[in-house]
Amino acid sequence: MPIDPARALAAEPRTAEISWDHRDVQLYHLGLGAGIPATDPGELRYTLESGLHVLPAFVTVAGGGKGIAGGLSGPGLDIDLTAVLHGGQTVRLHRPVPPVGTAVSSTRVAAVYDKGKAAVLVLRTEASDAEGPLWTNDAQIFVRGEGGFGGERGPATRTELPGREPDKTVERYVREDQALLYRLSGDLNPLHADPEFAARAGFDRPILHGLCTYGMTLKAVVDTLLGGEPARVTSYTTRFTGVVFPGETLRIRLWAEDGRRVRAAVGAVERDDAPVLADTVVEHH
């Protein structure tokens, strides 16, 4: 079997030193659509190096975002990348991410679940600097055709949305060039830029990175319900349920709960609110 769960789980973590500076953070924010209007004080916190705030979702690309790619090529894993889907993402912050930093990043397979027709790998990346832990980043990766080995199914991740109208609903336009800009933060998969490659993958045109939608949604939460303060976020999780095409509009519905949590549901407006993110929760203080 291409996936050997016992070997994958027992493998030594892959470690690397990563670094970033304000330019990496600014480029990431611009890739999420920050900076419109360019002189808006609320946008300048993401685009101007003086007083720069860091959206916690930046950790998915810090150091070039190589944790997932490296994790999929470890011991016990012989995976056809065409069978791989990014199923979900969780980021837990141990303290606010600085706009300039150096850290040691460690990536390992934290879990292997058996979903019947697919296996799910949880690739866990932990980063620490001289002052201690910074973040823990879990990517849930579906590998089609690799289930049925008799393993645990894993925890349920589905959550119910509140039975009331959203507290806020915002729309965010995805620019035609947004995937081209976002990919410069590290994910150069041609699926997001090359029409011929996208066609071979079964799409009419290149699609937006799921992690770009992930970042755009967190920015909407921070700007709308957290007073524009990214440092208030302590964790952020989502499940990817559909694709987004550049040129579409995201409709982001938000529910505030208990002063500590925001639930979100995200759909593509032009396709009758076809869901693209579900089971999305931002924990904050």
Results as ranks from 00 to 15, higher is better:
109 V>M: 02
126 E>M: 10
184 L>I: 15
103 A>N: 07
154 G>E: 05
134 L>T: 02
168 K>R: 10
140 Q>V: 03
196 E>P: 02
165 E>G: 12
140 Q>L: 03
179 A>T: 01
146 E>G: 07
127 A>Y: 04
189 N>K: 14
102 T>H: 15
83 A>L: 05
189 N>F: 12
138 D>W: 06
119 A>L: 06
197 F>I: 06
89 Q>Y: 05
91 V>C: 10
161 L>S: 04
148 G>T: 05
109 V>E: 00
172 R>M: 15
84 V>M: 14
168 K>E: 13
112 V>Q: 01
108 R>Y: 05
199 A>D: 09
133 P>H: 08
160 E>P: 10
140 Q>C: 09
99 P>T: 08
154 G>K: 07
132 G>M: 05
115 K>T: 03
198 A>S: 15
193 A>Q: 02
187 D>S: 05
170 V>H: 05
119 A>Y: 01
200 R>L: 14
137 N>W: 00
146 E>Q: 11
174 V>G: 12
128 S>D: 01
92 R>L: 08
177 D>L: 07
170 V>S: 09
204 D>A: 12
145 G>M: 06
106 S>N: 12
181 L>M: 11
84 V>L: 12
104 V>T: 09
126 E>A: 08
82 T>P: 14
96 P>L: 03
153 R>C: 09
153 R>Q: 07
199 A>N: 10
108 R>M: 04
126 E>P: 11
154 G>V: 10
184 L>Y: 13
132 G>E: 00
143 V>G: 03
139 A>S: 10
140 Q>A: 08
171 E>W: 07
171 E>K: 10
199 A>R: 14
132 G>C: 04
164 R>E: 07
155 P>R: 13
128 S>T: 06
144 R>G: 06
101 G>Y: 01
91 V>I: 14
103 A>M: 06
150 G>K: 00
161 L>D: 01
126 E>H: 06
203 F>K: 11
175 R>E: 08
104 V>E: 06
200 R>F: 10
115 K>L: 03
102 T>V: 09
83 A>P: 09
141 I>T: 04
112 V>M: 08
195 P>K: 06
190 P>S: 10
117 K>W: 04
169 T>C: 10
143 V>I: 08
167 D>I: 05
124 R>V: 01
146 E>M: 08
168 K>P: 00
159 T>I: 13
104 V>G: 04
134 L>H: 03
83 A>S: 13
180 L>F: 04
177 D>K: 04
146 E>T: 01
205 R>F: 13
176 E>N: 12
204 D>V: 11
131 E>L: 08
180 L>W: 06
202 G>I: 15
127 A>L: 12
130 A>E: 15
103 A>R: 00
88 G>S: 06
